[in-house]
Design a binder for these strands. Structure first.
Lengths: 204, 204
DNA sequence: TCCAACATGTAAACGGTTACATGATTAC
DNA sequence: GTAATCATGTAACCGTTTACATGTTGGA
């Protein structure tokens, strides 16, 4: 084979893809669906980006691709992880992670709470609460399904399900915290209103 | 003045900067410090990016800059927000936000829990818990200071402090949820070990 | 005299986003 | 026939990251 293109380490998206491929071979189209259905809870990716990254991973020798007849429609390009790809995941999981490089637009908007026009922040929080409550119900349902199929994570579930279960539990717990914070914030806004303030005001 | 360069809306970083400038004029150097000290909890930015974005915001008419003698060292370029800049913040805060475009590398690694070498995931969680516990203590301290200076958010605190207080409370509550999840995950791992499994295993 | 803090940037490379393009098969 | 789903991409643009470049002032 040709010498693998120089590339020190896959980026985060690359590792997310390798992680999925380590469970079973898949096409770009499959991965797109899996991002939407599972791992997208932790890392969002556009399909155009997935197709691009798959080529790059193959060139670097982390995966191998082969062409397969489509289920319906055009040919599919199926990718499998190579030993080099597995080594890359291990290296990624062992590498340190900077906890300070957060990007959370909701948190940023909260810092601007006092810049909303009067009343708007309260409405914004109510809308967010509804969206998250719906998502939370879906997540609880997914977890119940997994537990029903494979058992509780502490003992019965096979190792490859255990990560999925913990991942969903993580998503549930952090979403619950966001909802709890919203309730707290709404109470604060109500008290301020009682005390004769509007909840917010644009400074001059 | 010259016609403002065409630019439909500032991006998220631009809005984060405008939000800070709406409280008081600042230089790139000041903003860098403020990102580190306050708003960086919600949105991380490199200083090189801040300097570039400030130029772009000025060209688009969202801010105005003027040169001022430095406190020590070279000249400083102080920026103030314009009415156009304030309008842009209002538009941003009114715009919808996609809650599904999450990027959280920790969550992603949790999904890979079963791909860690035996024992490594547990250690990884312990290390993360320690880092977050330290951060949490600092956040609680910051909140106590703000409350001592300006009063509780529900009533006494002035509007411009209220957003900061809520922002820190948000950070505290979501970090507590992460810590609670870690404790849960460690228990699960312990039960699995008792049941005679190793916590994780590389699939062949 | 040397280091830390002050202060501002440019250039290149890389990653993420949007818009556009193509065409097959299956179910209604 | 026509829409939905299957399936893969390219190109251009924008945002993020890393590496590099420059020079001043004040304090130990």
């Amino acid at each position: 084979v040709a010498a693998p293109k120089e590339r020190q380490q896959p980026n985060v998206l690359g590792n997310a893809i390798l992680q999925l491929l380590s469970r079973s071979p898949a096409s770009g189209y499959d991965l797109k669906a899996r991002f939407y259905a599972s791992i997208g809870r932790g890392w969002h990716a556009y399909d155009t980006q997935i197709y691009r990254e798959l080529k790059s991973l193959e060139q670097a020798g982390y995966t191998t691709g082969r062409v397969v007849k489509g289920r319906a429609g055009p040919e599919r390009r199926m990718y499998s992880i190579t030993p080099r790809g597995k080594a890359a995941i291990a290296e990624w999981l062992a590498s340190p992670m900077d906890l300070h490089k957060v990007k959370d637009e909701f948190a940023l908007r909260v810092w601007s709470a006092d810049l909303f026009p009067p009343g708007a922040f309260e409405q914004y929080l109510r809308d967010a609460r509804e969206e998250w409550a719906t998502m939370l119900e879906n997540e609880r349902m997914s977890l119940r399904v997994l537990v029903a199929e494979h058992g509780e994570p502490d003992g019965a579930a096979p190792a490859n399900v255990f990560g999925r279960q913990l991942g969903i539990e993580f998503h549930i717990m952090t979403t619950e915290a966001r909802l709890a914070w919203i309730d707290r914030a709404l109470k604060v806004i109500a008290s301020r209103a009682d005390a004769g303030y509007v909840d917010t005001e644009d400074v001059d």
